[in-house]
């Protein structure tokens, strides 16, 4: 919102704080986050998974942004954090997947890890990774689109 050009014809609606919304969000947010994690972890054994869970977590970020303003939220959830979370998710997926190769298994063959319930933990790890990717990418896209664009010359 900051680099909004006054020349635009769009009507400027300054952000107003609403204590009802802020309080509600403050209360709900941890539960939403937990629910997101729950959905991610459940990818291994029932319906659920990283995509859905990640989307829920991202929804929480969006909710915070709407309640407290996009700027403050972004200061809290920095671009660096988003990148680290996204790449970290992919890397987690890759490492968990490549791990069995070192143990004479094939890619993503969790049972090669050898410990009890290895496939379950393997899938959960991967789902967490995917959740991190989805959550961070959606938040990142949201921030990117919210940022809008800068006007250049030759504007009509």
């Amino acid at each position: 919102m900051s680099n909004h050009n006054p020349e635009t014809e769009r009507v400027e609606r300054p952000y107003t704080e609403s204590s009802v919304i802020m309080t509600t969000v403050r209360v709900v947010a941890p539960f939403v986050f937990t629910y997101g994690l729950f959905v991610m972890f459940h990818g291994a054994s029932s319906s659920g998974g990283g995509f859905q869970g990640g989307a829920i977590v991202a929804a929480m970020v969006l909710m915070l942004a709407f309640a407290f303003g996009i700027e403050p939220t972004q200061r809290w959830f920095k671009n660096t954090a988003i990148v680290l979370l996204a790449t970290g998710g992919v890397l987690a997926f890759l490492f968990i997947g490549v791990g069995p190769l070192l143990l004479d298994g094939t890619f993503l063959e969790y049972s090669a890890y050898g410990f009890k319930k290895a496939p379950k933990y393997g899938i959960e790890g991967v789902e967490l990774g995917i959740g991190a990717i989805v959550a961070s990418v959606i938040s990142g896209l949201f921030f990117a689109i919210a940022r809008g664009f800068e006007y250049t010359e030759g504007q009509q």
């Binding site: 689109i145 664009f149 800068e150 006007y151 250049t152 030759g154 504007q155 009509q156």
Partner: peptide
């Protein structure tokens, strides 16, 4: 993203 860029360049 592309559309935003196009709009900023062509208006």
């Amino acid at each position: 993203t592309l559309i935003i860029r196009i709009y900023s360049e062509y208006g």
